[in-house]
């Protein structure tokens, strides 16, 4: 009887201790995070004009004004839409070509071995560097940005796709062969299917790359787009405008990341 009572006591103590620590951790964690953010924003706001040159560092309230101005004047929607459009088509172009290339080269080891050094050479070209070339080739309109975005996307998807095809265990292929799978079935049912998770990773992680590609293209030359907003504000020494445009861009990327996470969680159940 007494032993049983003591057992209960010990268990209770363990749960109590656990709960207390959990609660303490929770509050310290979230309060510290919040406090850090507030202190940072407040310090920026207050110190700007005292320690920080507002000309260079602006201040949160001014940035907010700029955001409001952008939204109300309609410049926000206009520019964001253009950048999204560039990134979208660039993504489609880059991801589609990369997927096809990865599937073909992944399935043909000899062909892959042949083109590998060429790929490595092209891969070593810093992506930004071809921007001016694309301007010469495709003009300063949307096309050069679409292709630059596609170039930013291509290698991420391609590398993941190839490593996906390579990661399909030899055993799966052998088993399917023994079961009498034809070549076409082998490719679609086993190899591409087995490569899907890797390919998905590439397709997911390359989405922000498309946006960056479009932005960089706009930096190099453009009259519209988020990249233009940033470089234009910068050229006018409008620091608050630069921060406002960067905030908008970050928000865009964040929203995309959240959407993608949701999508890939849905997809993960299907692609395993």
């Amino acid at each position: 009887m007494e032993a049983l009572a003591h057992r209960e006591h010990v268990l209770e103590r363990a749960v109590d201790e656990h709960r207390r620590r959990g609660r303490r951790d929770f509050w310290t964690l979230y309060l510290s995070r919040l406090a850090l953010l507030l202190v940072f924003l407040l310090a920026w706001q207050v110190l700007s004009g005292v320690l920080l040159d507002p000309y260079f560092f602006s201040r949160p309230s001014l940035i907010w004004d700029q955001v409001v101005l952008l939204v109300q004047s309609g410049r926000f929607a206009d520019n964001v839409l253009l950048t999204v459009e560039e990134a979208f088509f660039g993504y489609l172009l880059g991801a589609a070509t990369a997927t096809v290339a990865a599937a073909v080269l992944g399935l043909l080891p000899r062909a892959y071995a042949i083109v590998e050094p060429f790929l490595l050479a092209v891969y070593s070209i810093p992506s930004v560097a071809i921007g001016p070339l694309l301007i010469v080739w495709l003009g300063i309109g949307i096309n050069s940005k679409v292709v630059l975005a596609a170039y930013f996307v291509f290698f991420v998807v391609f590398m993941n796709g190839v490593s996906g095809v390579r990661s399909v265990p030899r055993g799966w292929i052998d088993v399917a062969r023994v079961m009498g799978a034809g070549r076409g079935q082998l490719v679609t049912k086993i190899i591409l299917r087995g490569a899907a998770p890797h390919l998905m990773t590439g397709l997911r992680t390359s989405v922000p790359q498309a946006v960056i590609g479009a932005i960089v293209g706009e930096f190099i030359s453009s009259q519209r787009g988020i990249g233009f907003l940033i470089s234009d504000a910068s050229a006018r020494y409008n620091t608050a405008g630069v921060f406002a445009a960067i905030s908008i861009l970050s928000l865009l990327v964040l929203v995309m990341a959240i959407l993608l996470n949701g999508l890939s969680r849905l997809g993960a159940r299907r692609t395993g």
């Binding site: 940033i230 504000a233 910068s234 960067i246 990327v253």
Partner: peptide, 10 residues
């Protein structure tokens, strides 16, 4: 998550 290249002009 912020595209670092976008900070270029800043």
């Amino acid at each position: 998550g912020i595209p670092k290249l976008a900070l270029g002009p800043l």
